[in-house]
Amino acid sequence: MRFVKTTSVLAVVIAGMLATGAQAAVTPPDTKDFSKGDWELNVAKSKFGCGKAPQVSKRHIIDAGWGMTFVDWTGSQADGKPFRSRYVFRYDGQEYPVGIDRPNAREAIVYKLTNPHRIDFTHVDKEHKVTSTYYRQISDDGQTMTQSSKFTGRDCEDLQVFERR
């Protein structure tokens, strides 16, 4: 009888833990732009057809106010070297430097919020020629973000799958 009771309690505890796990999804901070929030690359679910997969890639994407989005991108590259890149942008059709960590960026990015679940953006060089095109698509439940990267003149694509943290 004691065994049955103990087993029942354990079952309830495990069910509770599973339920908690199921509820571990993070609420997106901005329902008008689901790309906002903290994301971590799932390397196993991603496909790098053009570049090497990083070991770790995290993006902290916030609304800095006044329409400005701020991205703090950290991680470690394929060779294990750590990296950090910060950048800002607005969804206003203007060109924003690819980074704000050092002077004189070689490329800029133009961002478009296509809808709350999708962002399209384009890299351009200093002569305003397109060098690569991207989109970020966020799943209906807001928990997964897939980024596609295609590079001008190359027949390949990187598909990065991020999970919300």
Partner: peptide, 24 residues
Amino acid sequence: RYVWRYDGEKYPAGLGPNPANEKS
């Protein structure tokens, strides 16, 4: 850290953690 352009538009006074609060 903060950013701006000389274009007359308003830019946030800071890009630190959670800058978009009521006092920013």
